[in-house]
Structure formats: C-alpha cells, structure tokens
Design a protein around this nucleic acid. Structure first.
Lengths: 144, 144
DNA sequence: GGGCGAATGTTACTTTATAACATCAGTAGC
DNA sequence: GCTACTGATGTTATAAAGTAACATTCGCCC
C-alpha cells in the first residue's frame, strides 16, 4: 500500500470509527510514515516545526495519542517511540520485534500464538486485553 | 520468602555470578522490596535521600541497572518502573501482568507458552532473546 | 604503600511527557 | 444570522525520566 492509499484508508478508518483525521493529525501521520521503523515524538515535533514554523510538544503528543487510539500507530514502550501499523483494519494483535543490535523493527501478527499466554494469564485470574507486545532479539542480518 | 532471606539469597546469587551486592545496591534493592509492585526510579531516589541525606539520579539508576542485570529486578517499560523478581535463580521467562484499572502487577512464568511466539518470530527470521513481557489487562478484582 | 579497577559521588544537562488554561473552528438549534 | 456548545488546537510552563562526563573513593593485589 503506497502512502497516498494508506492515508486515504486511514481517513476512511477514522470516519468509520466516528472521528476525524484532521489536517494536523494527517500531517503527523505523514511525518511518521516518512520514517522507516520507529520514530520519536520529538523527532516528529522537529519535522513538524520545519513544515509549519512553530509547534509545541502537546500538539504532537495529542496527535500521536489519537493515532495510537485509532490503531494507526503503535507505541513501542521499550523505545519510547511509535511505528506505523499497516493493518489497522483487522482486529489484530501483534508482536513488534526489535533487533537489539541494529534497532530495526518489524511487526508480526500473533493472534493464534497468544492463545498460550492467554491461558497462562487466565490461570493467574487475569484477563488479557488485546496486546501489542514488544519483544527483543536479533534480526536475520545481525544474527550472523 | 521473607525480606531477609530474599536479600541473603540475592547476595549469594550475585556472588555466584562473580559480582557484588554492595551496601548501596543492597539498600536500593531493599527500598524496592518495601513497595508492593512497581516502583519508579525517582521514588527510590526520594526514599534513598530520606535514608542517607543526599543522592543523585545516577546513583539510583546505576544500582537499578545492576539489579536488573543480575535478574533481581525487572524493568517494566510500559510504566517506566521496576518490580522485584522473586525467582531470580531459575532461568525463567516471564509475563508481567499489569491491570489497566488498578495498576497492580504480578509476574507469571511462561517458558512453555512463549514457544508459540518464538515460532512466529522464527518464521519472520528473527531470533527472540529471553523475554520479560509486559502485558496489560484486567485483574480479578477489577474485572467485576 | 603504590597502583589498578570497580563503585560511587557530583554537576550539569538532555530527553520525554503532561498540566492547565486560552483560543479557535465547526455545527446544531433557535 | 446568532448563540452556545463541543472538540481540536495553541501556548506557557513545568514535571518526570534518564544520561554524559568527570572527580573521588574504596578495596585489593602486588
């Protein structure tokens, strides 16, 4: 899916969910899309400032929070960053794989594989919500 | 395991691993032990200052990093906090369950259940390291 | 007791995130 | 058209989290 299609789909997705991908939110989403992998909020802020002169942290954080809420982005806690999710339509649960060496990130769907963890959680009297796990390890290139 | 036994076991654990649970590190560990569940670094710092007058962030962070490295604590990324691990002896992998409502935290072992995720990661040409996952959901009390 | 390495102290700063309040834009009802 | 409301954005200030860099001290080996 190219960037334009993605943005259009994202807009429709928000519409369907009863909220709006405003100009600002769209702009922030575009800025995140321009990066490979994880982006930091303050990086987005800097980019935004380049495009529109001034902008303060809350502007960016609000937009990012919105995008995460809509499922368009995932927050990667381990890195204090954000990644684009490009299958926001399906009710997915994913693993975000972060290479410890090169830092590259990829997202994989894991609905089925989570069943085991869900069982363990159940046994501990705990109901797991939908998850977007961040897991670390080594990518193919760094494994050697 | 009570606190004293825990500390003794922790000390032995470090010894075995060829490093030392110094007075400072031990004190920090004790401070973390005193809290239920997750503690923040700056909370520990405040506690430490109460006990010994002055202390700066690096003092605490260094001790916490050490304790995490030794497996005595886990870092909970999603909360920017730390929890005591009380089975640091075994080669475990755990899920840290965080209740979205009350914030309570518990740790469960999941070596077996992780096999499924490991398979998915393998399929994505990614080698998972040992994991301490943070997962969110609802605890029994908050589920209603 | 001199020298070495690890641990701790100290200062200063960076990065990340949010509270609180002001303003503005769209729109539903009159 | 005007008003009043709601949700989005702007603005200011500050809180919270984390680290770099260098100084000092402590324990230990020779």
């Amino acid at each position: 899916m190219n960037r334009t299609d993605y943005l259009q789909a994202a807009e429709a997705h928000c519409e369907r969910r009863g909220c709006k991908l405003t100009a600002l939110r769209r702009q922030v989403l575009e800025l995140v899309l321009r990066h490979e992998g994880v982006v930091k909020a303050y990086q987005v802020l800097a980019d935004l400032q380049k495009e529109r002169g001034i902008a303060a942290p809350p502007t960016v954080y609000r937009a990012l929070d919105f995008l995460v809420e809509q499922g368009l982005l995932h927050r990667v806690d381990a890195l204090n960053g954000f990644v684009v999710c490009d299958h926001f339509e399906c009710q997915h649960e994913s693993m975000i794989l972060v290479c410890e060496t090169c830092g590259k990130v990829q997202e994989v769907d894991v609905i089925a594989a989570l069943a085991g963890l869900r069982d363990v959680a159940d046994a501990a009297d705990f109901t797991l919500s939908r998850q977007n796990l961040t897991l670390t390890g080594l990518c193919k290139a760094c494994r050697i």
